[in-house]
Design a protein around this nucleic acid. Sequence first.
DNA 1: AATGACACGTGACAC
DNA 2: TGTGTCACGTGTCAT
Lengths: 215, 215
Amino acid sequence: MISLQQLEKEAKPIQTYYKSATYSKQEVSYPERDIPTDATFHYKELAAKKHSEAERRRRLRINGQYATLRTILPNLVKTDKASVLEETIKNVRELQKTVKELKTVGRDRHKCEFPNEVNELNLSYSNGDGGLVKATLSCEDKPGLLSDIGRALRSVKAKVLKVEMATVGGRIKCELLIQGFKGNEGMVMLKRALKIVIDKPSLPGNYGKKICFYK
Amino acid sequence: MISLQQLEKEAKPIQTYYKSATYSKQEVSYPERDIPTDATFHYKELAAKKHSEAERRRRLRINGQYATLRTILPNLVKTDKASVLEETIKNVRELQKTVKELKTVGRDRHKCEFPNEVNELNLSYSNGDGGLVKATLSCEDKPGLLSDIGRALRSVKAKVLKVEMATVGGRIKCELLIQGFKGNEGMVMLKRALKIVIDKPSLPGNYGKKICFYK
DNA sequence: AATGACACGTGACAC
DNA sequence: TGTGTCACGTGTCAT
C-alpha cells in the first residue's frame, strides 16, 4: 500500500509541494513589532520557501546516501536508517579487521617462505627430546650450493631429517631439520661452516645453470 | 562559541525541554469537532510529549551512529552528516575491493607457487624467438629426483636456462626454462621422460632423506 | 546577506 | 491498540 506522502513526493512537482497554510503559521511565531506590509510578507514567504526547499535538498542528498548504503551492504535485514547505520559500522569494522589480517598474513608469508634479500643464517634448538636443530639459511642461489651444504653437514656428522626449500629470483631459502651432533661445539662448527658457504661468492655468468642437473 | 541549542541540550533536563507554546500550536492544527475538555487536552498533551520524546530518542540513536562513524573513518575532513555518509560509502567500497584483491592474490599465489597436491606436468612454448620451452612439474619429493630430471633433460639434449623450485610438505614444484631441442618430437620425448620421472614411486621409509646432500 | 547544517515537534503511515 | 519510523517545515547558529 503506497502512502499519501510517497504519492505526493513522487508525483507532484516541487512548486505544488508546499501548502499555503504553512506560511500563516510562520507569521504567528514571528512576534513582529510593526504591522507586516505585503512586501515583507511576500519576502518572508519567499524566504521560507527557499529555506524549506534547501532543507528538502539536504534531506534528499542524505537519503540518497542511505539508499546507496542499502545496496552495497551485504546481509541487511532491517532497512530503517538506524539499522543501516548500525550494519554499516559493523561492516566497516569487519572489513578493516579483515584487511589488516590479510595484510599481516601476506607479510608473514613473505617473511617466512620467501628467500631473504640479504644473506641469513640461523641455528636454533628445536624443542624436542632428540636434540634436534633447526637451521634456516638464505643466500644467493649458486652452483655447487647443495654440495657445499652437504659437506658442511658432513663435517659435523649431522644427519638431515627434513628439508624445505624455495628458490625465487636467484635467491634461495632453506630450512633444515638436523640431528646427530652433540653439544654446543658442533653447533658452533656447523654455523661457521655454513656461514662460509652462504657468503662464498658465485662465479659470474652462471645464471641459469646454478643448479646442476647433470650430477 | 557554544550555541544556545547545544546549551539547552547539554544542560537542561528533559522535562524543561519542551516549550508549552508547542502544544497550543498543536491544538490549532487539530480541527476538533467537539470542544476539547481538559481531559482530552491533557491526554493529547501527554501523547504529544511521548511522541516527541520517542522521536528525540530516535534522533539520539541515529546521531550516536554518526558519531561512531566519525571516529572509525580515516581521512575524514568534513564531519557533517552527508559528508560522513559519502565518506563511509567510499570507504566500504574501497575496503570491499581491497579484500577481494587480497583474497585473489592469496589464491593466485597459492595456485602459482605451491606444489600441487596431485602430480602435474605441463610443457609450453614460451613466446620468444629462441624456441624456449617452459616446463612446470609437480610431484612427490623423492631421492634422486634431481638426477632423474637431469637425465630426462639430457636425453633430449636440452639446456636449462633457469630453474625455480619450491618444496613444501614433501611435495615439490619445479619450473624449468629449457632450450636446445628442435621441433615437436623433442618436446614429446621430453614430456614422456618427465612423466615417467614424476610418476615413479619413491622407496618407502626414506622421508627426510629425499634430497641427497652427500652427492 | 545569504547559504548550509542541525535539532526540533508534528502529522502520517505501518505493523 | 500503541509503538516506531519517516518527511516535513521551522527556528537557530555558523560561515
